[in-house]
Amino acid sequence: MNESPKAATTPIRVAVIGYGYWGPNLVRNFSGLDACVVTAVCDLDEAARATAGRFYPAVRIVGDVEELLGSDDVDAVAIATPVSSHFSLAQQVIRSGRHVLIEKPMTTTSQEARELISLAEDAGVVLMVDHTFLYTGAVRKMRALLEEGEVGTPYYFDSERISLGLLQQDINVIWDLAPHDLSILDYLFDERPTTLQAVGYRHVGSGREEMATLNLHYASGLHAQIRVSWLSPVKVRRTMLGGSRRMIVYDDVEPSEKVKVYDKGVVLDLDGEDVTPQKPIYRAGDVSIPTLDRAEALQVETAHFLECIRDGSRPLSGGAEGLAVVELLEAADRSLAQNGAFVTL
C-alpha cells in the first residue's frame, strides 16, 4: 500500500518494553531520530520506571504491556527484556498490528522464532532482530573487503569476546555473548556451517556455563572459532579473519583504528625451486587502516528499522537472520549435552 505524502512524513510512534540494561540505549537512539517519536516506555520494575520518567518526562511510563498496547499512540515496539519473555511479548505486539524490534537472541527456541516469522508475515508488520554489530562500520567494511576479493579465499574466522560479567540468570554465556559473533558470521559469509562443537565450563556456581568455545566447520573449508567468557579480568572484543591474500584484525575495544588489514600470509608453491612444505614462503607486506563509518551502530540500526517500516523493505537482521542464530545456539546446547561432540547442522 502506498503511503500518502502526509503519512510518509508523520513520525513513527515507538514504544520500548524493558528499561534495564539495553532499553535506555534504545530509547536514547530512537529519541535522537527525526523519523520517530518515543511515546511510551514499559517496565515491570518501579525503580526502572522512575528512572525513565526522570530522563524522559514527556514520555508515557507504564508497568503493564496490555496498557501499553491498548493505547493508540504506538506504531512500533522495541523489546529489551530477558530472552525468556521475547516470544510472548513479540506475539502480543505483532497480534496488535505493531512492528517489532527484538533484542538478541530472538527467542529461546527455533520453533518460537518460526512462529514469530509466520505471525509477522500474516500481519504484514516488520519483524527485526537487534544484531547491533551488523550495523557497525567495522563489520560492514569487513564484508566489503570480502566481496571485493581483498581477503582471497577465506581460511578462518577467530573471535574472542570476554570480560568480567555480566552473569545472566536465564541463559549461559553462549546464549548471552555468542549471538554477536554468530550473526557476524552469517552476515559475512554466504554459506551455513555444516557441523558445530561447543565446549563449556562452570566455575562459580551459577549453574550455567560461564566460559565456552565454539568451533564451526563449513563445506568450503572455512573454520570459525568463537571464545566467550564472563570470567575474564580484561575486556576483549577481537576478531581475526584470515584468507589466502590478506588478514583482517577487528578490535572493537580499540578507540580509533578498529580494523587493520595485513598483507601477510604463507605461500607454499611446490613448483618453486627453493620452496618445500618444510620451507614455505612467509609474505609480510604493509598494514592498512581503512576509513570506517563512525556512526553509532545502534542509531544506524534504529534508523534502518524505521526505514523498513516506511518502505516495506526487508531488514538486514530480520526474522530469518534471527532464526539462523537461534538454530546455532540450539546446536551448541546439543553439543554441550554430549560433552562437546560435533553435531551436524
Rank of each mutant, 00 (worst) to 15 (best):
S183D: 11
L214S: 01
V77W: 03
I174M: 01
V236T: 12
V125D: 01
F87L: 02
T136V: 14
A7T: 13
A219R: 12
A331L: 12
D170W: 04
A341V: 12
G63R: 00
S220W: 13
N25G: 10
V41Y: 04
D251I: 02
M142A: 14
G124Q: 10
L298W: 04
H217A: 13
S317A: 14
L231D: 10
S244G: 11
S220E: 03
L166H: 14
K258E: 06
V125G: 03
Q278K: 11
D45M: 10
P179C: 04
A284F: 06
A123G: 01
F342N: 09
H304A: 12
D252G: 07
R334D: 12
T132Q: 15
D73N: 15
G242N: 05
V37S: 12
C308F: 00
E257M: 08
K104I: 05
A113R: 03
L241Y: 07
A331R: 05
F157I: 04
N172C: 07
I162F: 00
V27G: 00
D176V: 00
V275H: 07
H304R: 06
H180K: 07
R95E: 15
Q169T: 14
R246N: 07
R161E: 12
W22C: 13
A324E: 11
T132A: 10
A78S: 13
A90G: 09
G124L: 11
L145A: 05
D158M: 14
S229V: 14
G63Y: 14
V14A: 09
F55P: 00
L329Y: 08
A40D: 10
G285C: 09
S88W: 01
L268Q: 14
L127C: 06
G149H: 05
A76K: 00
T344C: 03
W230N: 13
L33C: 05
T9S: 08
R161P: 00
Y218T: 06
S159L: 02
F342M: 11
S110W: 04
R60F: 13
I171Y: 11
L329N: 03
S4P: 02
T194V: 14
P57V: 07
F87V: 08
V173H: 08
R237D: 15
V261C: 09
V37Q: 10
V173G: 09
A341P: 05
L328Y: 09
N339D: 15
Y21P: 00
V129G: 02
S183N: 10
A50G: 15
V27H: 01
A295G: 09
S4K: 05
H304M: 12
P255T: 04
D263Q: 14
V38F: 01
L26W: 03
V38P: 01
K264N: 12
V93H: 03
V14T: 05
T109E: 02
L166W: 07
D43C: 07
E273P: 00
V74A: 05
R294E: 13
V27P: 03
I289G: 00
L270G: 04
E330P: 07
I12M: 05
L177Q: 10
P233D: 15
V151D: 01
A295R: 14
L101N: 04
R143G: 03
V38A: 01
I171A: 05
F157D: 14
D158A: 11
G272K: 07
L26F: 13
S313Q: 04
I61C: 13
P277G: 09
T344K: 06
H223E: 07
L182E: 11
E301P: 00
